[in-house]
Design a protein around this nucleic acid. Structure first.
Lengths: 221, 221
DNA sequence: CCAAAAGTGTTGGCTGTACACCCATGT
DNA sequence: ACATGGGTGTACAGCCAACACTTTTGG
């Protein structure tokens, strides 16, 4: 374990506890992560994950929700606890990490800050402060795994969408192309999504079929 | 969220941080959990999971290892972070939980304490302090899931074992019987275990074939 | 001799994957 | 007319679950 360059703050079992959020979205066909720029040392000016110490009486999850809302204005999205790291910052603190999935359409990045938050494609991240790189990689692995057996994608899409849109989201997250027919079959047979009521008219001027998620909250199979 | 009956200890983002360990073993054909009795209020005299606040400069994982060693004398076993709970004790603390798997043969429960630790079958737990019941259930779900795609069982068994022994461990954890032939085939074809070098002599007096885990450290597929 | 545990193959169902063409719409 | 995207079926391979009897060992 690395030697702490700072005096210990950990007597009595009391520790600084922070929440960190890896916020994902899919835009321009790519999976993207939200990063902010640090305005204070250490790592001043470096890109890093949104997060910070818990407020008095606040739970780690509440802090994650608060950070998410502060940075993106979005609430009521998929949020899941990832892992709890120790000493990410070299000061003996504990960081509870989360990942969130947001629909890029609804997000308005807070422009109030001097150095505003920005989306970065996961494949082209800048150097990150602390050990945030690790955290992003961990989150990405988890997200990809969950895609296979849960409905996490619901919060990346509008309430109604076409199969093509859904498939593009999956492809962006997995980073590889999928077969259209197999994809459709799987989504339907898992009961993940269902066609909207709007019957497709036969004959001329038939609009594409729209689908919705059966459940717009976390489900695991 | 429940109202705290105690004054908040959470100003400045400093919180009490504890580690809790769900220690599993398989004995008498049953999956068992190690519990201790609390010697102080609240919940004095109730059964609960081993754990406690971090020592100065100690990481949550190190605290979990320490607790495990204190209670069972065992070291170098499978240990995995589970989930981080908030306010388990109603005092606004953060509890990082772990689960561990130990081979019952190697364990010598510390008898030094007035109220010694004891194994309980998971199916027959006594009432537990705080919300430890939740933690055990969470751990059990995770353990069962991991059994399917990892080699976690290695630390529940001696270095060499028969297929029958291995199968009994799986059955105890899953709580249902398995088919002998399918089980053997799967273990071998997944490359989880391999026969020991000792060639089975043909003819009379052939001892049962012994197997070992290919890797005695955490592997996930 | 008896009880207990090791060892051994085959079949049928299901699931996942690979693969190509037509139709409608909008530009 | 062309480009874009929606929509459709089949065949093969691998995986899992069900199923019964023989051999060996130790007492």
């Amino acid at each position: 374990m690395a030697v702490s360059p700072h005096p210990p703050t950990s007597a009595l079992g009391l520790r600084p506890v922070a929440a960190l959020v890896v916020i994902f979205t899919v835009a321009q066909g790519q999976l993207q992560v939200l990063l902010i720029r640090r305005s204070a040392p250490p790592y001043e000016g470096w890109w890093s994950l949104p997060g910070g110490l818990l407020s008095p009486n606040e739970s780690p999850q509440a802090a994650a929700v608060r950070k998410l809302e502060e940075e993106t204005g979005v609430t009521d999205v998929y949020l899941e606890q990832l892992y709890t790291f120790h000493n990410l910052d070299g000061r003996g603190g504990v960081a509870v990490t989360y990942f969130a999935l947001v629909n890029g359409e609804q997000v308005h990045l807070s422009p109030r800050q001097e150095w505003p938050p920005r989306w970065f494609p996961v494949a082209q991240l800048p150097p990150l402060a602390f050990r945030n790189q690790e955290v992003v990689e961990y989150a990405l692995g988890r997200l990809r795994a969950k895609l296979g057996y849960s409905n996490v994608a619901y919060s990346l899409l509008p309430p109604q969408f076409t199969m093509g849109q859904l498939q593009k989201v999956y492809e962006a997250i997995l980073g590889r192309p999928l077969d259209k027919r197999n994809f459709r079959r799987r989504m339907l047979s898992l009961g993940l999504v269902m066609p909207t009521g709007k019957k497709a008219r036969l004959g001329r001027h038939r609009p594409p079929q729209l689908y919705t998620f059966r459940e717009r909250r976390p489900i695991v199979f």
